[in-house]
Amino acid sequence: MRISRRTFVISGGSSGLGLATAQNLLEAGAYISVLDLNPPPEQLHIQSGSSCQEYNARVKYFETDITSLSDIERAVAGTVQWFKDSGAPLGGVINCAGVGLPSKILDYKKEPHPLDRWEFVMAVNLTGSFNLTRLCLPHLASVEPELPTEETRDTSSADGERGVVVFASSAAAYEGQPGQTSYSASKGALVSMTLPMARDLADYGIRVVAIAPSMFESPMTDKMKPKVRESLRKELVFPKRFGRPQDFAQTVRWIIECAYINGETIRLNGGTRMPYKL
């Protein structure tokens, strides 16, 4: 699917994986609707040298608590009005908003996992992704299917595709560590719903793909002690580094452009499997 002059909704688009994805797609000519609690940083820009005015015209920010249905509804309605005004039809939904609250099922005092922590992780990682996706889908399914034009004769657009849904899962869906019961459950659910959702949406020409990153550079890994980081680095296969947000963004872009990847979860880990514990 072509990226240029298509609108992509990115939850969690103001930082981390979501921000890197927004940057990458902007450079390819996309319009980006950012849903986040905080606005994207001012340094988000177009590397090609486009003017700030052009950039501002292709980015729309909606302050959104992804656990709030009314916030999501408002953001989706605003995005729909925006792409109708801009003439850049909806191209996909990229779910990057996520949290992790470590907690063992029984702590050292034999106290059970706090229910409020479980519910919050599920509300952000799973229900938030589901709600944003389901509310965008009627609009995505109404987009004119992408077909080759006389000018471009682009055979990659000959499938009549309408759009793409991307979920940010995690290696924890497969190799959760101690304290990751709720996080792993939420990320595993995203993996499990990818294929049936892709099958549900096949008749509409909408693909669904999940990405399961492993050890990535993040605010959490930045806070790790040098000894812990070095221990993790020894587990890496190749490259011998943590993943970078740009690696995730590049994968999203490939997913959008490659029409034959569908109903699948891509493990983005450099050949590494998460160890039993840090």
Score class of each variant (00 low, 15 high):
T194G: 08
R229M: 14
R199K: 13
F242N: 03
V228H: 14
S231M: 11
L232C: 11
V209L: 07
G205L: 02
K227D: 10
R199E: 10
A189R: 12
K227L: 07
F238E: 10
K225L: 15
K227E: 15
L236N: 06
E217H: 08
R233I: 08
D222H: 15
L201R: 03
E235I: 02
G188T: 11
S231H: 10
A189N: 10
M220H: 12
R229P: 02
V228G: 08
I206Y: 02
K223P: 04
M197Y: 01
R229W: 05
V208E: 05
K225G: 14
F238T: 08
T221W: 03
R244Y: 07
D222C: 13
M215C: 08
K227H: 13
F216L: 04
L201A: 04
K223F: 05
A212Y: 04
K225S: 15
M215Q: 05
E235D: 06
R241Q: 12
A212K: 05
P213A: 09
D222P: 07
P196T: 01
P219Y: 04
P245H: 03
R229L: 14
L232A: 11
S218K: 11
M224W: 15
R241L: 11
E217N: 09
F216E: 05
K223A: 15
R233Q: 13
S214Q: 07
A189M: 12
V209A: 04
F238S: 14
E235R: 10
Y204T: 02
M220R: 15
A198E: 06
A202R: 07
V228N: 14
I206N: 00
M215F: 13
V209R: 03
V237S: 07
S192H: 11
T221Y: 06
P226S: 02
F216W: 00
P245T: 01
K223N: 15
K234D: 13
S186H: 12
R207Y: 09
P213K: 00
V191L: 06
P219T: 04
V228P: 02
P213T: 02
S218G: 10
V237G: 00
P196Q: 06
P226D: 07
T221M: 14
K187T: 07
V208I: 06
I211E: 03
P239E: 12
K227R: 15
A198I: 00
I206F: 01
S214E: 05
S218V: 05
E230H: 13
A198P: 01
L190W: 02
P213V: 01
G205H: 04
R207M: 05
L201G: 00
K187A: 02
